[in-house]
């Protein structure tokens, strides 16, 4: 018996360490490539470096947010083919932004400093998202596909409502929110970087501290309750973190629907671990690596900076269909 247990323990103990170390090296390499590749000498060297560092930070931030939020969300939803975006999280954020600008007016709200505006937006987002999606997921657990479909349609509803408000409101106000409605890795919102970075760091740390509870949550509701997990509280807390992270990535680059799917799929596949202590850092590293590497490839090598988000979405969608056909929806 003892043999069987150690056998089980050995790959689980060693493999993740190597995988995480490898991923960290890869990220470091890609980041170095991003920073110094093709960097000329001369007077504007410092300026270019600063520009690149800003973008690197933004890409890393979004990659980590998407990775960690997707893995967390998939655990809460007990489903490996979902992302917060598919379920309408980012659409809710865009709607919220639009509604705030529309109702509070361009002078009052949009006139606030970007940081204060962002912080109040994400505070509201956490409240709304955890209430709405918490209800949906706690109530909908009996019929998971219906819950997914509800989320997808809610996303459409939020997007339509945001579009409606955008059309109805003042064009000057609309321009304020329009930038946030489409994904772009080129037009990064740099003013938000420090505060977004701080929020991401806190949320990721909080998620990592929850990892043991997330492990139990992954066993399903009945088992988690039987093991004494405060199921509802953990679900709400996890969804709040997801809402935070989605707000950050949506505010910085805009909505990315399927990217998280690839990241979470890779994190599960590479680590082959069910431990969130391993999965969450792996997902963060993978997300950042793909975004930085992808942007480097598309922007510097292919000269088609605009298309990375489209390609990522395409690949993510295909991956989703593949998972669906392989019967991994459950």
């Amino acid at each position: 018996m003892a043999e069987a247990l150690t056998l089980a323990a050995r790959p689980a103990a060693l493999r993740p360490v190597w995988v995480l170390a490898g991923l960290a090296c890869l990220l470091a390499a890609v980041s170095a490539l991003w920073m110094w590749q093709g960097l000329g000498g001369g007077g504007n060297r410092g300026f270019v470096l600063g520009l690149r560092a800003n973008k690197l930070a933004a890409l890393a931030l979004v990659g980590v947010s998407v990775g960690v939020s997707t893995v967390t969300f998939q655990t809460v939803a007990a489903n490996r083919v979902l992302t917060p975006s598919i379920m309408g999280f980012d659409a809710l954020y865009v709607l919220l932004q639009t509604a705030l600008v529309a109702s509070l007016g361009i002078a009052g709200f949009a006139g606030l400093p970007a940081t204060a505006k962002f912080l109040s937006e994400i505070a509201l987002m956490v409240l709304l998202a955890s209430a709405l999606f918490g209800t949906l997921m706690l109530q909908g657990a009996r019929d998971i596909p219906r819950m997914i479909l509800t989320g997808v349609i809610l996303g459409v509803l939020f997007r339509s409502l945001a579009g409606f408000m955008g059309r109805v409101m003042d064009p000057a106000q609309y321009a304020v929110v329009q930038a946030a409605s489409f994904a772009s890795f080129n037009r990064v919102n740099a003013t938000l970087l420090p505060v977004a970075g701080a929020v991401t760091l806190l949320a990721v740390l909080a998620a990592w501290r929850m990892s043991a509870r997330l492990d139990v949550l992954a066993l399903g509701r009945d088992a988690a309750v039987s093991l004494g997990l405060r199921h509802q509280a953990v679900v709400i807390a996890a969804l709040s973190l997801v809402a935070l992270l989605v707000s950050v990535s949506t505010a910085v680059v805009g909505p990315v629907a399927f990217f998280g799917l690839i990241v979470a799929g890779l994190a599960h596949g590479l680590t082959r671990s069910a431990s969130h202590g391993v999965l969450l850092p792996a997902a963060g590293l993978i997300g950042a690596t793909i975004l930085i590497g992808g942007q480097w490839l598309f922007e510097r090598q292919l000269g088609q900076a605009a298309t990375l988000s489209v390609v990522v979405e395409f690949a993510g969608g295909l991956f989703f269909l593949y998972l669906l056909l392989k019967g991994r929806i459950r």
Binding site: A78, A218, L219, H268, A274
Partner: peptide, 20 residues
């Protein structure tokens, strides 16, 4: 307490499950 629904989302080994 053991409910009827025993399908789990995470890919666990049997020993890991029992350890929970």
């Amino acid at each position: 307490v053991l409910g009827q629904q025993t399908l789990i989302a995470s890919r666990l080994r049997l020993a890991e499950l029992v350890a929970f």
